[in-house]
Design a protein around this nucleic acid. Sequence first.
DNA 1: GAAAACGTCAACCATTTGGTTGAATATCAA
DNA 2: TTGATATTCAACCAAATGGTTGACGTTTTC
Lengths: 107, 107
Amino acid sequence: MTTQLDQVFSALADPTRRAILAMLLEDDMAVTDVAEPFAMSLAAISKHLGILTAAGLISQEKRGRVKWCKLEPDALREASVWMQGFGQMEALDLDAFEAFLVQELEG
Amino acid sequence: MTTQLDQVFSALADPTRRAILAMLLEDDMAVTDVAEPFAMSLAAISKHLGILTAAGLISQEKRGRVKWCKLEPDALREASVWMQGFGQMEALDLDAFEAFLVQELEG
DNA sequence: GAAAACGTCAACCATTTGGTTGAATATCAA
DNA sequence: TTGATATTCAACCAAATGGTTGACGTTTTC
């Protein structure tokens, strides 16, 4: 059996998929546009998007020949709740988040 | 290149490893005792503990012939910061966390 | 209608992952 | 010192993962 939590964490374990989520943070995007910055085939990106969709982290809606990808931040709640019990996190630190984001996108 | 974030998320993606973390939440444990409730070999658990250690989620200290395992919640901070930017989490909800924990341990 | 653009599917491949078993290494106890 | 306990190591295996390519079905544009 594969739980939702399994799927969310293993989806997040891949840097390409985290970068995709970071891109979708700014705006909804078509599959082709998501793929553009990556040095890999469109088919590979299509698979990554399928995994993110299965985990509930994004949703995809087809309009015409274009399939739009949209971030679904709610799916992170379950995982985040799990983590917070261990980490005893302080309140949301947006500066720290932004620093990580920049590092991720550059690296 | 494998980042710390990669390692933390992929460590958390496995239900056995999450269950181990949940056990260590209560107290430090020896490897043999960690392995006891699982239907798999001691060697397999030893590997899981190695992965958790590499991710920084636990530490291991050998005293005599016993190797003690200790939760290191700080490693979750990095990952949690990453997630919070997407999830816009509300404050720590311990009840929800406990519910997940019970579900994890029973399932 | 023909051609281009958007995206997925299927088959394939190399590597990683999660498990096994059996032998090996320490340490403690009798 | 002999034996039991605690843990890892090494070799192996099946299945999952992350990528490729080429063919395919739609939708749009010319």
